[in-house]
Design a protein around this nucleic acid. Structure first.
Lengths: 162, 162
DNA sequence: CTCATCGTTCAGTATTGACTGAACGATCTG
DNA sequence: CAGATCGTTCAGTCAATACTGAACGATGAG
């Protein structure tokens, strides 16, 4: 495997591990990112030197997160995986959902806290405000992102001459 | 300890654990959030039923992340901890830094990838665009957040040029 | 100085979680 | 139907990591 690819795959493994997911999942995602085509499970297992079992599990997890998708090829029983159209949007949606969960926790705590803990309630209120703003901001960001992508859409391939 | 507090503390532990940090750190942060006052190490250890060693380590980690701060009291040798003025800003800054690191990884990969992997380079380019947008958006969000907080400042009339 | 108190460090322990190899069920081929 | 090829599941193994208790250095009080 290419030297640059191998290094990138390894670094993506570390980055994704820091984000909370498994290192192996990060490697898979990295390889699919630069691969530019669908990969079968066996191919992933071979190139990443991992067991097919682990690859299968991690691929399904990445699929759950909406970062990769499973595609099938006619006349081929194997499963192929490739990166989603827009994996980053799905990633942001997952984060957004986590923030929604946090808002739920904060809100319930604020409601059930005894009245004498007024200062704590105030702090929770600030936390709530921030995260509600944050959740709305994700919507705004993704809208903006979609606009940018549509602007460069190949609907009219004026300068797409490859 | 209050029932509502205990439940909130535990849930914050789980939430923070999902975010990648230690569960105990999440519990500390949760307790400080609703406590409304500084806590000493021994007090934290007692209320959370954990060893002082673990509390100490996790507090320093939370301080490193800028989510809590250490305060001292005159005539008291003990260290006290409380939540930062704006812990969420620091949290977002940490996330922003992680995204910057990712941009670095993506950029270097795009630069060193062999020319025949054009499709992969294109995918990396899209990823770069998204994360650069995301990084800028954090700045925008925090600006907006500061405006909102300043607007609700007590004793400070709306337009203050000082 | 001596003692007490506080925070930190360190070795040891336990628990969590990822990964592997082998067995299994399902599906296609001839 | 028989054989082969996939993907998945499961028990076992391994490493990483969070936590604890004890020892240590530092700092203030008497």
């Amino acid at each position: 495997m290419d030297e640059a690819v191998q290094q990138f795959v390894e670094r993506m493994g570390l980055v994704c591990e820091k984000e909370g997911m498994a290192r192996s999942a990060g490697r898979i995602f990295g390889l699919l990112l630069v691969g530019g085509r669908p990969f079968s499970l066996d191919e992933l297992a071979e190139k990443l030197q991992a067991s097919k079992a682990g690859i299968s599990t991690n691929c399904r997890m990445l699929e759950q997160f909406g970062m990769i998708e499973r595609v099938s090829s006619l006349g081929d029983r194997r499963d192929f995986y490739r990166v989603q159209d827009d994996p980053w949007e799905h990633m942001m949606r997952v984060a957004q959902q986590r923030w929604r969960d946090l808002v739920k926790v904060l809100g319930e705590a604020q409601a059930t806290l005894p009245p004498q803990m007024a200062e704590g309630k105030r702090t929770l209120g600030t936390a709530l405000q921030f995260h509600q703003l944050l959740i709305r901001d994700v919507d705004r960001l993704l809208e903006h992102w979609h606009e940018l992508q549509h602007a460069g859409d190949p609907g009219t391939p004026a300068e797409n001459a490859a």
